[in-house]
């Protein structure tokens, strides 16, 4: 037996011309000197491998569905908008008359809503960075483990799932009416802040949690105070993660329509929410404003057929800004990860 197995080893190592001619089946039935040592365990593995291949196929198909849907949607919008996204479209206020949107017409477009959306998102970014990151730092770095902390964290996670229209109602009650901001840019920004705050807090907490304790200990070990540890060690390490989470949340906020309807954003404005203070353009925080999603909605519901092209052009502008924001998030992440 030992002699035969060693000879089969020799045959294998000697080269293919010796081992190959004796096919697998022959070896197995023969049962003698070239028996496949794995023959008894083979079938079960074969079956599992098949299940594995089916699983991969299902996963790949799932991926494909999402991608195909997205590509079709994008292609449709791009085709609709082809030729309608012009410089005039970006720099002129909207118009009721479709002729004004035609190339060579008087010029009409998305300008006030574009500026409104950008200001809205800029304000929201400032508010969420301060409130969201502040809350995350407190919960992660300072608050002691307790039932109260667990309760607060569970509620924050739940708030992330609350429909945006509910936040709109809250914004209407608190900011528009109670605080007296009116149907203004500020009220809109604060409402959007509430909407994305839970997501920003949770993602920032995750970024902070990803900073290894060994880093904190290193700083404490040379005599840093809690504040210095957070400022010099924890925040710099967590910042890329925090920024990524915040920017992605903001790109959700920029496409929101429901809460803005509730706080009374204009569907169509002919003036950007900008004031002229002694020659310097300043955002008009307390004035009315329009935002891109609402402007697009306004165009889409107009009966005249060509307005569908205008709406598509608006969507292209909105998507471009979204894409820009997401690209920024990815750039920030990559820049700091490779360091």
């Amino acid at each position: 037996m030992t002699g035969s197995s060693s000879s089969s080893d020799d045959a294998r190592t000697d080269g293919d011309e010796l081992a190959r001619p004796e096919g697998g089946d022959h070896v197995r039935t023969d049962g003698g000197e070239h028996a496949n040592p794995f023959a008894t365990v083979g079938d079960d593995i074969e079956r599992k491998q098949r299940i594995g291949r089916v699983f991969v196929a299902v996963c790949a198909a799932s991926t494909l569905v999402g991608i195909v849907a997205l590509v079709v949607l994008l292609a449709d919008v791009l085709l609709e908008a082809w030729g309608w996204v012009t410089l005039e479209f970006l720099t002129y206020p909207p118009s009721r008359f479709i002729e004004n949107y035609y190339p060579g017409g008087r010029g009409a477009g998305i300008f006030p809503a574009l500026v409104g959306s950008i200001l809205l998102i800029a304000l929201t970014a400032v508010f969420t960075m301060v409130l969201g990151v502040g809350a995350a730092i407190y919960l992660e770095e300072y608050a002691a483990e307790s039932r109260l902390k667990g309760f607060i964290e569970a509620n924050i996670s739940n708030l992330a799932g609350v429909p945006s229209i509910v936040y709109g109602l809250l914004g209407l009650a608190v900011f528009v009416r109670f605080a007296g901001f009116g149907e203004s840019l500020l009220a809109g920004a604060l409402t959007l802040t509430l909407l994305i705050l839970p997501i920003v807090i949770v993602s920032s907490q995750e970024a902070l949690r990803a900073v290894p304790d060994s880093q904190r200990h290193a700083a404490y070990g040379v005599g840093a105070t809690d504040w210095e540890v957070v400022r010099d060690v924890v925040l710099p390490s967590a910042l890329p993660g925090i920024m990524t989470g915040t920017i992605l949340s903001l790109s959700r906020a920029i496409g929101e329509t429901a809460p803005l309807i509730m706080v009374g954003a204009a569907t169509s404005m002919f003036r950007a929410p900008i004031e002229d203070v002694s020659g310097i353009p300043v955002p008009d925080l307390f004035g009315p404003f329009a935002a891109m999603p609402m402007q697009i909605f306004d165009w889409a519901r107009l009966p005249e057929g060509d307005f569908q092209h205008v709406a598509a052009a608006g969507i292209v502008v909105l998507l471009s800004i979204l894409l820009l924001m997401n690209a920024t998030a990815i750039l920030i992440r990559n820049k700091y990860e490779t360091r």
Binding site: S214, H217, A218, A219, Y220, G221, G223, V233
Partner: peptide, 14 residues
């Protein structure tokens, strides 16, 4: 901790 420095098990440079 300013009088007593510490070196940890795993190297943990910033």
């Amino acid at each position: 901790r300013r009088r007593i420095g510490m070196v940890f098990q795993k190297p943990n440079p910033f």
